[in-house]
Design a protein around this nucleic acid. Structure first.
Lengths: 351, 351
DNA sequence: CTGTTAGCGCGTTCAC
DNA sequence: GTGAACGCGCTAACAG
């Protein structure tokens, strides 16, 4: 053989054993080109039924699965959305609302074929990590859940400077150029509740608040007291250190020791209210006859207390849905808007 | 001009305005080649200090950020780990343990520079989606948290057939070829607790169990009753429908109505125990003098009840750490092992 | 309707 | 020590 050319001819290695089957393998088996395979893979038109059929069979017989990274590189879309927590996860899990939030978001996103990435950003380093992560192009969009934590504004501006759509859950507390957000408007529900208290004839109500540094924590109390100025004396507003049942119980005990002259209490969350009821039970006080109790959130626990809680429903599920709806607009290169979902009184037995 | 060749010469588009800065841009600015930039980017040796310096400056001045997809494609590593839930999230959030699990896993993983992807697999479709997701190469590893759900074995075998390391949290219930797992061994703690009851002189204890279809649910009860056969009569084992406070309260009420002759109760979770104590309080029964109560988990609530709970500590944090430790071995192409972390009696006031 | 070809951005041998 | 060139697997624009 006249094999004068010693150049190591490009080895036609059919397929390294360990390697995954690629679009090219499928093409060979189906007797078509890569381009065509790509077309049927993405459901594009302009492919004859029989070719499509042949490709489909080839894909099945070879056990082909499209490679995510290659796809992302070519399309510059990842199919991932970041769920960024502005607080350590434990804090988040205290509140049953977040379980629903996460679940609904996951579901809605899955329906659009997006997957969720869970990131925490409660410290400076974590925030930097998140910012980098986002700019590296790991995700197509961001949902930011800040539980009123400090130092969030840096993250937000970093997010803004990146190209990808980001939306906040709850009011982002930044002066200059806030993110679009979705938040529940506590005001209408809290007002309705205040009027309900008035209608019931209560004369003196205490408020167990929490996280007064957040918009949510503030507005509930403000709207309630604003609607019924005479009902709540300033010194009857007590702040629990967290939205937990234990904290509610503790607060109520304190209240009972120092202010026995109240006939009703408004707790800024159902968990707080449940704790308050616990304390009232301890003290052999009948709810609502001697002291009425109302909560906020209408979370699952509202129907598990005895008596069941009169409360204000903020549909976290709706918030979640609005969140993805806006995000979807953003992903579609549209301009996202901020949306406020209303909140509503739910009268049960405790007040 | 002798422009006979009408072929549209490859347009030398310098850089489309919207495009991100690439390794090539950095190379140009630094006056080196792509290869060199790549080397300093990955901290490889064989780069002179001054070149390294120049490249670093170029990266800074251009605002370069490495593209994740391109990197994944080239290295076939994504830096992502999937956290797969075998049950709907709400179910998961009922149990405070999972909050810790998620948090610790996130932290540990972040330290290794891995990010978490949250996937649910409580239905057949979701399981299929997860399997596909994994095989598309979205993640480098999988942590499977099945809360004793059915139909999980398919997912597991799909996972096995894929190349990537997967580890289960809790015993995977499959006959043929189970995944390596990390689980708490409830036995020692439950036994210690039984002996503690014996030592305290209790004569008749009721058991509030739950999720008896899971290994965890089963083994706690089995170990306890096994260690103190005479203590628990068969008809004194009652099953709550979930690990919640309300369910515990309900169960305890039932117990009080039908079996007033007990002097102690062992609840298979702290939440259950807390509920039992609630019911006991209602009935004006003093804990532990009249009826002693013990829980399981040593979750946060164990110190918030009155009296504080005697319970069994299963360190979820340790489980989480072992989980990523094993996963790390798997990612390193090593062979993962199953690990069992022990559990231990914690005596407080309630029993 | 289908094949060809040129990227997508980075890692990585090889020569030099 | 450094540069050149190819490969990763897929999409998309264009030619036919």
């Amino acid at each position: 053989m006249a094999d004068g050319d010693a150049k190591p001819l490009s080895k036609p290695r059919r397929r390294r054993p360990g390697r995954a089957v690629t679009i090219e393998d499928v093409a060979r088996v189906a007797g078509v080109s890569k381009g065509t395979v790509s077309r049927v893979l993405n459901g594009h038109d302009w492919v004859s039924p029989k070719t499509r059929q042949a490709v489909a069979e080839a894909m099945a017989s070879t056990g082909f699965v499209a490679n995510a990274s290659a796809r992302s590189l070519a399309t510059s879309r990842t199919g991932n959305i970041a769920f960024v927590l502005g607080a350590p996860p434990v804090r988040l899990f205290e509140d049953p609302n977040y379980a629903v939030l996460l679940q609904v978001i996951t579901e809605e996103l899955a329906q659009l074929d997006y997957a969720l990435m869970l990131l925490t950003a409660s410290t400076r380093e974590e925030q930097a990590r998140v910012a980098k992560f986002v700019r590296e192009g790991h995700v197509d969009g961001v949902i930011l859940v800040l539980v009123g934590e400090a130092g969030t504004d840096e993250l937000i501006s970093l997010l803004r400077s990146s190209r990808i759509p980001a939306i906040a859950c709850g009011h982002p507390f930044v002066g200059d150029d806030p993110l679009p957000f979705v938040a529940a408007d506590d005001t209408p529900g809290a007002r309705q509740l205040a009027r309900h208290f008035l209608a019931r004839g209560y004369r003196s109500t205490a408020v167990i608040a929490s996280h007064l540094e957040t918009s949510g924590g503030k507005s509930r109390v403000a709207a309630f007291t604003g609607e019924a100025p005479g009902l709540v004396r300033d010194d009857l507003i007590i702040e629990a250190h967290e939205y937990s049942r234990a904290a509610g119980q503790h607060a109520m005990r304190t209240l009972l020791e120092t202010r026995p002259d109240i006939d009703s209490v408004f707790a800024a969350s159902d968990l707080l209210a449940a704790g308050a009821i616990d304390a009232l039970h301890e003290a052999r006080i009948v709810v609502p006859r001697q002291i009425a109790v109302a909560g906020f959130d209408d979370s699952a626990i509202a129907q598990q207390t005895d008596p069941q809680l009169t409360t204000v429903r903020q549909s976290v599920a709706d918030v979640a849905r609005q969140l993805v709806a806006q995000l979807r607009i953003g992903l579609d290169a549209g301009v996202m808007a901020s949306v406020t979902v209303p909140t509503q009184l739910v009268v049960r037995e405790s007040a």
